Amino acid sequence: MKPDFDLNSMLLHIEEAIRPYPKAAMFELAERGYTTLFEQLISCIISIRTLDETTIPVSLRLFARARTPEQLLRLSPEQLTELLEGSSYPGQKAYTMRGVAEAAVNQYNHELPAEFEKLTALKGVGPKCANLALGVAAGHSAISVDVHVHRVVNRWGYIQTRQPEKTMKVLEEKVPETQWTEINRLLMPFGKHICTGILPRCSTCPVLLWCRQVGVTKHR
């Protein structure tokens, strides 16, 4: 019989376990000084269907040329697409980014609004990127759910959901608001390196005491 979930203890154990591994891309970029809402949102757009190992160098390459909406709009669509090569769908992302930059300049006086509804109203900006940018750049309490977070909390048996958007809503109801931003910071690298999609490392998992191992048939 597994004990009741103790989220505080679980997150403390996970914090220690992920210490040897690379940080989630947005948090790594923030530590390098890319902390504006625009930079964080642009990097999150780069990260869509793209590994962190690619997201970080592509973001750095772009930011060497453009860190503000005005600078980005000085790049042609072709130049922007070329800078985004290596990430998935660079042409589509270039189009999305130009739309974000145009909205910042023309609608919001050159600065993106730190509001979830207004960010997600921008074409190509979903709840994950809006919340992640708001949490990292603006210090808002926000839960960002990617594939890793979605898989981990469902594997634990902490929640039972089928879609990341639903996971976000349920976690907002269950997790104290003070821990919302920590969810992505901790569970993304935990899910990538320890609670992996295939053959999770259950034998050395720091939260096995609480985990129901839902759907796990084989593990390391």
Rank of each mutant, 00 (worst) to 15 (best):
L171W: 08
H150N: 14
T178D: 15
C202K: 14
Q160P: 12
E172C: 03
A66M: 00
I14T: 05
L75H: 03
H219P: 14
M97I: 03
E16L: 09
L84P: 06
H193L: 12
E31A: 12
V125C: 14
A30R: 14
T55E: 05
Y21C: 04
Q79A: 00
A138Q: 15
V153C: 02
L37M: 13
E177L: 14
S88E: 12
S76P: 05
S141L: 13
P127A: 12
L60M: 01
E111I: 08
K123N: 08
D146M: 04
T36A: 15
F190V: 02
A94I: 06
R49M: 01
R155A: 04
G126F: 01
T181Q: 08
T68K: 11
H110D: 12
G86C: 02
Q160F: 13
V58A: 04
G91L: 11
I42W: 01
E182R: 13
L199W: 12
P200S: 11
L73P: 11
P20F: 00
L209E: 08
I198V: 08
A138C: 15
A137N: 07
S87V: 03
R65T: 01
L11H: 07
A137W: 13
G99S: 05
N8K: 15
Q213T: 15
S88R: 12
E70I: 04
H193K: 10
R19I: 00
L112S: 06
A66S: 01
E70P: 09
V125H: 12
D4R: 07
L51F: 05
Q160L: 12
A64P: 01
S88F: 05
L7Q: 02
G91W: 15
G135P: 13
A133W: 14
I56Y: 03
P3Q: 13
L37C: 14
R98L: 04
K123Q: 05
L122D: 08
L12H: 10
F63L: 11
W156K: 09
E165F: 08
L84N: 04
Y34K: 15
A121S: 09
L72I: 11
V216P: 14
T181C: 09
I159W: 10
M10Q: 12
L209A: 09
G157P: 14
M168V: 07
V152Y: 02
A104R: 02
G33L: 12
A114K: 01
D146S: 11
L75G: 06
K218D: 14
E177G: 09
M1Q: 04
E102C: 06
K123R: 02
M10K: 15
A121Q: 06
C129F: 02
K166M: 00
M168R: 13
H13C: 09
A66K: 03
I14K: 13
A30V: 02
E15K: 14
A94W: 07
A104L: 07
M1D: 06
H193T: 02
C211R: 15
S9F: 03
C129H: 06
E182P: 05
F27N: 13
D146V: 07
I159N: 10
A142K: 11
V145Q: 00
P22I: 12
S203R: 09
A137D: 06
S88L: 08
T178Q: 15
I18V: 05
Y158L: 08
V105M: 10
P69R: 13
R19L: 13
K128L: 00
L62N: 01
Q40V: 06
T35H: 11
